[in-house]
Design a protein around this nucleic acid. Sequence first.
DNA 1: ATAATAGTGTCTATCAGACAGTATTAC
DNA 2: GTAATACTGTCTGATAGACACTATTAT
Lengths: 245, 245
Amino acid sequence: MTAKQTEKQFLKSYNIHDFDVPLTSVDMAIFTLKDEQLQVLLVKRAQHPALGQWALPGGFIDFKKDKVLADAARRKLAEKTGVDTPYLEQVATFGGADRDPRGWSVTITYFALIVCDEVELSGDESSDDVKWVPIKDITNKLELAFDHKQVLAACIERLKNKVQYTSLPVNLLPEEFTLTELQQTFEIILDKKIEKKSFRRRIDDADILEETGNMKTGSNRPAKLYRAKPKGENFYFTRNIEGPR
Amino acid sequence: MTAKQTEKQFLKSYNIHDFDVPLTSVDMAIFTLKDEQLQVLLVKRAQHPALGQWALPGGFIDFKKDKVLADAARRKLAEKTGVDTPYLEQVATFGGADRDPRGWSVTITYFALIVCDEVELSGDESSDDVKWVPIKDITNKLELAFDHKQVLAACIERLKNKVQYTSLPVNLLPEEFTLTELQQTFEIILDKKIEKKSFRRRIDDADILEETGNMKTGSNRPAKLYRAKPKGENFYFTRNIEGPR
DNA sequence: ATAATAGTGTCTATCAGACAGTATTAC
DNA sequence: GTAATACTGTCTGATAGACACTATTAT
């Protein structure tokens, strides 16, 4: 009876493979803003299973390199994009007997928000190809490996929901940006127009930005450039953006 | 090179144990309302590791019984409480090298809301004892196994957050209840008073309850009894409960 | 009648949307 | 000047909190 052993004795005779252990991996939905669209990074699988199919980047935990789960996500992100300080959020974990032909599998899913001009796409041994795909193109046209369409849908839903009451889109813009650019980012993700004055009031009340002192010039009145305040974590509003009435 | 194999050949030679696979389990925070307090179910561990310590109920996936992750959570819940149709929500997944002495481990965490008079607590082989603990008693008094204090904190935070803008507390009440009882449930979880009229307006606008036709009598004016509407999923409000100004 | 709790009427405060107005640049 | 975009003033509308009021029961 195990209860008679010390914990040390127990651990000595313990073998993880005596139990049902699922194949556990981490998958990422890496979002960026490109060509005025919200896009997600897909990789073409270079290995079985689902060889040749497009999939969310992901892979197994590296027991040596990863101390906690988020490390694995950050590592995958850096491998594919070179970006190492993204906004990163765990979304959900999917697990089941039928989602991977290798057997019972679990995937912990994260999404990341990055600035795409800071990215240099790089494939690696596990992918023939890497590309940005506008999320609007993912509906029925494109097949994704495993249950990744469902996984991605969960990430998009989470992102859209949070954009209604947080300042998350700041993470999709470069260091300096105008209020109009920020508003456009919100509009692209929410896929609806926001009233300018409401938007500016909201951002102003949140007190999350500071002027850089620089201006963005164009063929018209220049716009003030802002940056996120240094310790500016993501702000949570108590009311949602509602959109046109 | 794997790319030259068919998927079938690949799967034939595939062995899950050739990779780093963490010890993956499911843990539950089972909440109920008891003695006018929000309480959580803890079990005393009857096995190594952390033998004798209090912990959230949980365990490994059963590849035969569980088709998807939520099945494992539901199964754990039924084993401990006999309840089989709870409100169940996945909260977060914790994983790391140091959270379990057996090695790199991952736990997918769910919370459940149940009605405690429908429960018959039952230990099983893996637990000496099972008990309800008010969440207010969990601060520093009580040690929990592994990182379960942190895990539980995440569940409590999620619950509190969602109670601000959903109708979740309905799931903690029996079939029939009064509006005052429902309000008290919200107040207990949020740990603050809610203005009666605001609360009733909110519930009324949501249109999620129906009168049962019965009344609850006491030493004063009887109160109408309500039940959740049949297809009443949990309602999402667009504004949070704000509490006293 | 009184105590006690159920339930309502209605005021104010807050913040989102609407929309017209002013400001500042390039040309 | 005109065109274009940045930015603001201020009205309306929706919904939360405050709080006093009425309603209905047991005793």
